[in-house]
Design a protein around this nucleic acid. Structure first.
Length: 428
RNA sequence: GGAGAGUUGGCAGAGUGGUAAUGCAGCGGAUUGCUAAUCCGUCAUCCCGUUAAAAGGAUGCACAGGUUCAAGUCCUGUACUCUCCGCCA
């Protein structure tokens, strides 16, 4: 959500920002928004004048004598009727305004690459060496089969497509990765928190999932409840409607939760294996900081650095993608994706997504803090990044670390979380 | 699932249908000076207005309705919190 005052004062910049994000006038016309705002202001002024008059009369009734009293009551009643009509008009206009306002994307950073879609994304750097195998490497599905690590076919009959069941050391590995990342985040000052995977509707608007991508979300009508696609949803609303003290900031959360996605738009993509499933586990990094672009950009770099560290600890080759304006989602100001090398696909696949949302979400959740310098109440900035998401992260992990016999090496940083094991596999 | 109690500003906490007390914290100012105290203003959103302020006004007591000239206060519904009972990993 953008401040209407900002839109009024920077109309050209906002139009430019919308264009960069790939919006046309048909998608979203800010002139419509501005016209509505003008109407609303007019209606407010006239209805407030009416309310003022009515209040004056009402307040005089108490001390009026019997003769005057009935006349004043009648007058006030008449004004009340008039006011009600004005109010109804105002409410209708405001409702329209709100709907439009919720559709307004965040303005992209001037530093973000400009492009229409993922073709405009820019690789900033590649880290780690792509492995060269002196044997024919297996893909993660074969590796799971020969090591007795999964029940993919059986579980599909029970839970449907895009689900997974993994077992033995691979199941342990999944949890070990989360434990490692949670410990790392704790050492960086994050508060470890496990959060629900169910949510009411309002937080989805707060995050900016709605009104944009309803198709992606599981909904349970009997309870009017949604399944969360990420802990970001919950963490973003955890402090909603609060006015924090500046010295409480930054707030750093390391949130762990099962995550659910319908993958409605992904039919045919990644149908086999662990890359794209309806239910997964994610450890999420979430930051609430001051309304200061230098400050939130600092945290943006920090979050990216932490997830790069995670991939380095897991000894996985990856690249840092600077996501372009047309490919980043509506809430984002700047977005970096980390893509990790997947040998069987001979390409990098997204495993982390690191975003600076500035105050766009905080306006939607009404999350504010009192600034120490001027005592004013301001909207906070929020940021989020993946810590680790499984089972997707297991795909590059077992493929990159595989041996000729199908066993998989465990990097040294992860070994403590695997009971000291250096290698896992059936024949060990 | 059942019974009862509750929800007032950043926090604490009054409020019997007639302009939301008071204290603490924050911010601004004044004053005295001795490391702090005192006093005044401000301290949720919006309108009008202004170079910027000030002054003025509207709204705001969990949310949504209703009754009334007038609702924090009365009525209805919903959400949430607490206590007890039931069920339960």
């Amino acid at each position: 959500m953008l401040d209407i005052k900002f839109i009024l004062e920077n109309q050209k910049d906002v139009e430019e920002g919308l264009k960069k994000k790939g919006y046309t006038k048909n998608d979203l016309d800010i002139n419509e928004l501005i016209a509505l705002h003008k109407d609303i202001t007019k209606l407010k002024t006239s209805s407030q004048a009416l309310a003022e008059e009515k209040n004056k009369i009402s307040n005089s009734i108490k001390s009026a004598n019997v003769e005057e009293r009935q006349e004043l009551i009648n007058k006030s009643k008449a004004l009340g009727e008039e006011l009600k009509k004005e109010q109804e008009k105002l409410d209708a206009e405001q409702e329209k305004f709100k709907l439009l306002e919720l559709k307004m994307p965040n303005m992209p950073s001037p530093d973000a690459p400009v492009g229409p879609d993922d073709s405009g994304n820019v690789v900033r750097r590649k880290v780690g060496e792509i492995p060269h195998f002196d044997f024919k490497p297996r893909d993660h599905i074969e590796l799971m089969e020969i090591n007795d690590w999964s029940e993919m076919e059986r579980i599909a009959k029970i839970s449907g497509s895009r689900t997974y069941a993994i077992k033995n050391d691979l199941a342990k590995l999944e949890l070990a990765m989360h434990m490692m990342v949670l410990d790392k985040l704790r050492s960086h000052g994050f508060t470890v928190i496990t959060v629900p995977s169910i949510s009411k509707e309002k937080p989805l608007y707060g995050q900016g999932y709605l009104p944009f991508s309803r198709d992606e979300i599981y909904y349970m009508p009997e309870d009017d409840i949604y399944l969360s696609g990420t802990a970001e949803l919950i963490l973003n609303s955890l402090r909603a409607d609060e006015i924090l003290q500046e010295n409480e900031l930054p707030i750093l959360y390391a949130g762990f939760s099962p995550c659910f996605r319908r993958e409605a738009g992904a039919a045919g993509k990644d149908t086999r294996g662990l890359v794209r499933v309806h239910q997964f586990m994610k450890t999420e990094q979430f930051v609430i900081c001051k309304n200061d672009i230098a400050e939130s950009e600092k945290w943006h770099r920090k979050l990216l650095e932490i997830s790069e560290e995670v991939l380095q600890d897991l000894e996985l080759p990856y690249q840092v993608l600077d996501v372009c304006t047309g490919d980043m989602g509506a809430p984002k100001y700047r977005q970096y994706d980390l893509e990790t090398w997947v040998p069987s696909q001979n390409c990098y696949r997204e495993t982390h997504s690191c975003s600076n949302i500035t105050d766009w979400q905080a306006r939607r959740t009404n999350l504010r803090y009192r600034d120490n310098a001027d005592g004013k109440v301001k909207f906070a900035h929020t940021l989020n990044n993946t810590g680790i998401a499984t089972p997707r992260a297991l795909v590059p992990f077992i493929e990159n670390h595989q041996n000729a016999d199908g066993s998989v090496n465990i990097p040294i940083k992860l070994q403590p979380y695997m009971g000291g094991k250096k290698v896992i596999g059936k024949n060990l």
